[in-house]
C-alpha cells in the first residue's frame, strides 16, 4: 500500500475513473497545467479532450459539465477555489438541484463539483470560505468532504459513479496530508460516517482539518475525558444513525464545523439532535464554528477559525 498525500489520492481517483469509463472527463480553468496539484499529469495521459480548460467563464464552464451530464457524460467540474462556485451559483445550486426531481425523476444528472476550500492560507473570504453547508442547503445535491487520503480517493470515485450531482470540496489545509491509500479499486460510500476514535464521555463531530484538530485534542485529554470522535464524511445524505448511536453512549455533543455559525451544517445537525435525540442528551449541544464574519485574511484568519484550543474549551464546557 502506498503512502500518498490527499491531492495525490484525488489524482489517483481521477486517473482510475478516466481509464475505467470513457464518459468521465474533467473541466475547469488551468487544470491541465494546474493551480493545485490534484490534476497533475492527467492531460499527458488523457489529452485535452478529456482534461478540458475553459476561459475564465464560470457559467460557461459549469455549463459544459451540466449539459454534458444530461448527454450521458460523467463530468468533474473544478471551481479551483470553492468561493468561485458562487459566480455561477444559480446553475450550480438551483438549476442543478431541481433538475432531476422537478422534471419528474426521469433523467439523472451525474456530475461532480469539486474545489479547494478552507482557512489556513490567509487568503480571505472569497478564497477561504467553505461551500459544503451552502450546497447542502439546496435539495437534490449530495455533499461530502474527505478528511484522509484514503477517503479522498474512495469518495471521489463514489461521487463520479453516482447518478446525482455530488459536491466534493477538499480542504487546503490537508493538501499535503499523508496516509495509506490502497492501489485497488475501492469506494467510500456516500452517506456513511466514520467513528475515528471510541470514547464514552463526549462525542465530537468534526470534518476535514477540524477532524485532525479534534483527534489531537482527544489524545491530549486522554485520562481526563474519554472522547469519541466521528467524521460525518457526508453531509447529504447525513448518517444520523451513527451519531445517535454514539450519543446513546456519551450523552454529550460538540460539533466542529469550519463554516459560519448561522444556517450551517452544525446548526442543522444540532436541530436534528434536539428533534430526534433530545432524551439522549445530558447537556446542550455546543458548536465550534466560524463567527458570522466574512473570513478575514492575513494573520487575522487564525483569530477566528476553529482550532484545538476552542475544541478543548468546548469539551470542558459540555462536560462540566
Amino acid at each position: 500500500m502506498a503512502e500518498l498525500t490527499l491531492v495525490e489520492a484525488i489524482n489517483r481517483a481521477y486517473a482510475e475513473e478516466l481509464r475505467r469509463d470513457d464518459s468521465v472527463f474533467l473541466v475547469g480553468q488551468d487544470i491541465r497545467g494546474g493551480i493545485f496539484p490534484h490534476t497533475m499529469g492527467l492531460v499527458q495521459e488523457f489529452g485535452p479532450e478529456r482534461i478540458v480548460d475553459t476561459p475564465i467563464a464560470e457559467s460557461g464552464m459549469y455549463g459544459v459539465a451540466f449539459g454534458a451530464a444530461q448527454e450521458g457524460f460523467r463530468p468533474v467540474v473544478d471551481f479551483m477555489f470553492g468561493g468561485f462556485s458562487y459566480v455561477t451559483f444559480a446553475e450550480a445550486s438551483v438549476t442543478t438541484g431541481q433538475y432531476y426531481f422537478l422534471h419528474g425523476s426521469q433523467h439523472p444528472l451525474p456530475l461532480v463539483i469539486t474545489a479547494a476550500v478552507g482557512t489556513g492560507m490567509r487568503l480571505a473570504n472569497d478564497h477561504a470560505m467553505s461551500i459544503h453547508g451552502t450546497f447542502a442547503h439546496h435539495p437534490g445535491i449530495k455533499v461530502a468532504m474527505p478528511s484522509t487520503p484514503y477517503d479522498a480517493k474512495g469518495m471521489m470515485k463514489a461521487a463520479i459513479r453516482d447518478n446525482n450531482p455530488v459536491v466534493i470540496p477538499w480542504h487546503m489545509g490537508l493538501m499535503q496530508e499523508r496516509g495509506e491509500v490502497p492501489e485497488d479499486d475501492y469506494i467510500v460510500p456516500l452517506g456513511k460516517a466514520a467513528v475515528k476514535r471510541q470514547g464514552s464521555d463526549v462525542t465530537i463531530l468534526a470534518n476535514s482539518v477540524q477532524l485532525k484538530h479534534a483527534l489531537a485534542v482527544a489524545a491530549k485529554l486522554e485520562g481526563e475525558f474519554d472522547v469519541e470522535v466521528i467524521d460525518p464524511r457526508s453531509f447529504v445524505p447525513f448518517d444520523m444513525e451513527t451519531l445517535l448511536t454514539s450519543l446513546a453512549k456519551t450523552s454529550r455533543l460538540v460539533i466542529v464545523d469550519e463554516d459560519w455559525e448561522s444556517g450551517g451544517f452544525a446548526a442543522t445537525v444540532s436541530a436534528r439532535v434536539m428533534e430526534q435525540g433530545f432524551d439522549l442528551l445530558d447537556a446542550p449541544v455546543i458548536r465550534v464554528t466560524l463567527p458570522n464574519l466574512p473570513v478575514p485574511g492575513g494573520y487575522m484568519e487564525e483569530y477566528i477559525a476553529p482550532n484545538p484550543a476552542k475544541i478543548e474549551a468546548a469539551i470542558r464546557q459540555v462536560c462540566a
Binding site: V52, S59, G60, Y62, G63, V64, A65, F66, G67, A68, A69, Q70, E71, T88, E91
Partner: peptide, 8 residues
C-alpha cells in the same frame, strides 16, 4: 450554459 455542454 447547458447549450455549451450539449454542443461539447
Amino acid at each position: 450554459a447547458p447549450s455549451v455542454g450539449w454542443g461539447w
